[in-house]
């Protein structure tokens, strides 16, 4: 299965006079994990934001973006609906507990309440049960990754026949992140390097 899931060709993005992304091209095969690496300010986040429509690419460039057949400039909603985004900062509600937060996000994706509850329960099996009951805990920021996994599972269940391989790899990645909530540890295991090493 070597169809391209994401194709980005000759994309640029400027903020005023500063060009954050210049002539970016890459493609991601379906069913694969892809890492975008680069030093601070390289435009990694901007590139990601352009994929799900939080940033708009420069209009004058003749580039192309194809995310599973959708263009973010035209079908932002469709792309957002089938993707899961783990933000750099925690942006869940600290006042709500994990289950309540996930219920809110399941509504954004228009999941029926009953199905959402079942999947949240299933996902929280990966976590310490006490954490789920705590409200406004500091560790909540780590649990934002549950949202990603929720998405992955939703995807897995809805589109099993079409995108089984991709979903399975996503699910695996999701589980792994949940089990290893310490991102630095994940990075170390994956690359053999510490996050702070600039090499």
């Amino acid at each position: 299965m070597a169809t391209a899931a994401v194709t980005v060709r000759n994309i640029s993005k400027s903020f005023g006079k500063i060009q954050a992304v210049r002539d970016l091209s890459f493609s991601v095969d379906a069913g694969s994990c892809y890492g975008l690496l680069g030093p601070n300010g390289a435009g990694k986040t901007t590139a990601m934001k352009m994929i799900y429509g939080k940033c708009t690419r420069d209009k004058n460039c003749e580039g192309l973006m194809d995310i599973f057949g959708y263009d973010p400039a035209k079908n932002e909603l469709a792309i957002k609906y089938f993707s899961g985004v783990v933000q750099q900062e925690n942006n869940l509600d600290d006042e709500l507990n994990v289950i309540q937060n996930l219920m809110i996000y399941s509504r954004f994706y228009d999941m029926p309440a009953k199905a959402a509850k079942e999947r949240i329960e299933y996902l929280l099996d990966f976590l310490d049960a006490e954490l789920a009951e705590q409200v406004g805990d500091e560790e909540l920021s780590n649990l934002i990754r549950v949202d990603h996994a929720l998405n992955a599972v939703r995807y897995y269940c809805d589109d099993m026949e079409v995108l089984k391989n991709l979903a399975a790899s996503q699910l695996e990645a999701g589980n792994y992140l949940i089990r290893q909530t310490n991102l630095e540890d994940v990075f170390l295991r994956a690359t053999g390097r510490h996050l702070n090493d600039k090499q």
Partner: peptide, 30 residues
């Protein structure tokens, strides 16, 4: 691969409801 004909995402009223629901849940928390 072009899916543009069969765009699938929650309809407008469900999207607006989900945003309303978010605010309502946070408000009724206390």
């Amino acid at each position: 691969m072009t899916n543009s004909d069969a765009i699938e995402y929650p309809p407008l009223h469900r999207r607006l409801y989900s945003i309303w629901y978010r605010h309502m849940r946070v408000y009724t928390r206390n």
